[in-house]
Design a protein around this nucleic acid. Sequence first.
DNA 1: AGGCTAATGTCAGCCACTGACAGTTGACAA
DNA 2: TTGTCAACTGTCAGTGGCTGACATTAGCCT
Lengths: 218, 218
Amino acid sequence: MATSTPHSAPAGGLRERKKQRTHDALIRAALELFTEQGYEATTVDEIAEAVDVSQRTFFRYFANKEDVTFAVQGMVEARFLDELLARPAAEAPLTALRHTVAAAWDDIGSVIASVIPVELYMRTYRMIESTPALVAVLLRRSAELEEQMARLVARREGLDVDADPRPRVLVATFSGVMRAAGKVWSVGEDCSVSAIRELTMSYLDHIGPAIEGNWRTG
Amino acid sequence: MATSTPHSAPAGGLRERKKQRTHDALIRAALELFTEQGYEATTVDEIAEAVDVSQRTFFRYFANKEDVTFAVQGMVEARFLDELLARPAAEAPLTALRHTVAAAWDDIGSVIASVIPVELYMRTYRMIESTPALVAVLLRRSAELEEQMARLVARREGLDVDADPRPRVLVATFSGVMRAAGKVWSVGEDCSVSAIRELTMSYLDHIGPAIEGNWRTG
DNA sequence: AGGCTAATGTCAGCCACTGACAGTTGACAA
DNA sequence: TTGTCAACTGTCAGTGGCTGACATTAGCCT
């Protein structure tokens, strides 16, 4: 269940390697099927059959159909938090978040390469954005990530996250803006990594101006 | 039966009134059961039985189990948008949003009174916040509301919502902050309307300070 | 009264998901 | 190598959300 396996060194025993292979194969098969024929149009039986395991085995690896959809996303999120933790303490909170997201996009490939190609990850992202049931899950996951980000930011600044609202407010702002960028990207022409990276950065630049009172004279 | 129905302004025919009654009764029964014994522990059959209709009829009124959970929320959201539209054009965007949310809490009672008591609405809100599957749906609905808010804000300011990112960024900020407040309220002691109203207002006051660079000297 | 149609009930069935039990296969010691 | 244990897997039966099809009931309207 825990996917904290450093892929540089293969793995422990044969059993464990086999498990990892099945796990990754299920993800690949699922995402391939989802992006080709749609999420709801794909049954769990199909995914299991594509990997040649029973449906029951699928549910031993993933708690539900949504879980397999976001397995790779989970790896990306974990890396994001790692990188945020590693930012220099001197940086202002919003600056640290901004640098972290830039870095996260820069090495997205190396994070997920062992499981799926980046191109499939991007296609999956778009499939998620166009599937209401998955959008809901994506947003809930983002909210959970937000909570962890708020705690990290509060720690950097030596604040109590439950007493001072600023960490949560800042992170809510940041992640709302990220979501807006992701949504716009998902319906745009250019589905490249650099496209979403640039769009995100540009949106972040607008936080300051947007909350100023008067846009009409700005 | 006695055909004396001296209510304020009922509805058209008997058929329509009956439909409305079943609709509201299903909502009441569902929310009562959900808040008492939990969302997943309540089956659709139970809800239908409580109102004395078949399961199939339930699904003719509500597309799914989540739908009935958020039916009242839908009324509140519609009213919110109406009130935002009615704000004076001279107000700055964030100010208009702030006044709208204050007004929305002020007349929550009159909006939903015909369906459920306010107290059940508040209990439902807390039940939603503590049920992961419903949190996901709540967030997706918020995102949809956000989109409509962004369009209204853009219209007020004479902007193209797809060309200028500021409406979406502002609304993302605003609604992220609202969500943060709602989450904190949902685990707090005081489950009154005024409590969430005050908490929300207080959080909104922190948007400006929070995005400023340096918190340590502020 | 009688025909039209919306609303409802019944039934069969798909799919996501789960518990229980049995069979298989790596791991590891003797 | 072999035997034992534990982990992994398959099979099966069952629950609950949800849908289509079809027959029945009940409000509406002439």
